[in-house]
Structures are given as structure tokens and as C-alpha cells.
């Protein structure tokens, strides 16, 4: 099955998930490398070290049509959120950053 990369809060992390990115502590030291499988001991350790979020790969059951529909809904919503600022270059930059982020996250 296709995988999808997501950031999850530690409360939603589950055993069996695979880390898509390394986990670092506040000082920047690597605690776990990408590819590590989460088990109970790993999760408890991360929690004790104050790690709040993880990047993991999750199975993605959506069809191509569903993905396309989701993308269209997302674009419409982002454009609505920014609709007061069509002529503002600064906020257009932010809107482009959000659109790019969402396209990557949804595709």
C-alpha cells in the first residue's frame, strides 16, 4: 500500500509505526534515526525525554480520485481563508507556502 508522511503528536503515535525522520532532543542530539519502528519501550523513552511530535509514514488507503477531490477542497479552503488579501504580496507568499505544504501532505 502507498504510504503517507504525517506529523503526529506523541499521544497518537502507535506501536508498529515507522519513523520517517530522525527524532532530536531540544539540544539537537539525535535520539532515534529514521526507519526506527516504534514499540512500547521506544515510545515510553520518547515521552520521558519530552518529545511531543513525531514524523511517521502511515498507510494511505485513498484512491487517486479521492486524493484529487481532497486537493480541490483544500485549495478552495485556502483561497477562501486568504480572500481578503489578493493584492498583498506578503500574504500571497504565505498562501503559496501553505498551498505547497498542503499539496505535499495530501499527495
Amino acid at each position: 500500500m502507498k504510504m503517507r508522511r504525517v506529523v503526529v503528536p506523541i499521544q497518537e503515535a502507535q506501536t508498529g509505526m515507522l519513523l520517517a525522520e530522525e527524532v532530536r532532543n531540544a539540544a539537537g542530539g539525535v535520539l532515534l534515526t529514521a526507519g526506527t519502528e516504534l514499540d512500547e519501550a521506544v515510545l515510553a523513552g520518547l515521552c520521558r525525554r519530552g518529545v511531543e511530535c513525531l514524523v511517521v509514514d502511515r498507510p494511505d488507503p485513498r484512491s487517486e480520485t479521492e486524493i484529487a477531490e481532497e486537493l480541490a477542497r483544500m485549495e478552495a479552503r485556502v483561497r477562501h481563508l486568504f480572500h481578503r488579501h489578493r493584492g498583498n504580496p506578503e500574504l500571497q507568499l504565505l498562501m503559496q507556502a501553505v498551498l505547497e505544504y498542503r499539496r505535499k501532505a495530501l499527495a
Binding site: V7, V8, P9, I10, Q11, C53, E100, Y101
Partner: peptide, 20 residues
């Protein structure tokens, strides 16, 4: 914004965690 964009995923996850 490009620098901040690298934090979007973390922001969303932290917000979800706060609500949970």
C-alpha cells in the same frame, strides 16, 4: 515564510495535542 513553512507540520500536531 519559507523557514516557518518547515514548522507547519509540527504546529498542526501540537495544536491537535493541545485539543486532545
Amino acid at each position: 515564510w519559507p523557514d516557518v513553512a518547515g514548522r507547519f507540520g509540527e504546529i498542526e500536531a501540537r495544536y491537535r495535542a493541545a485539543c486532545l
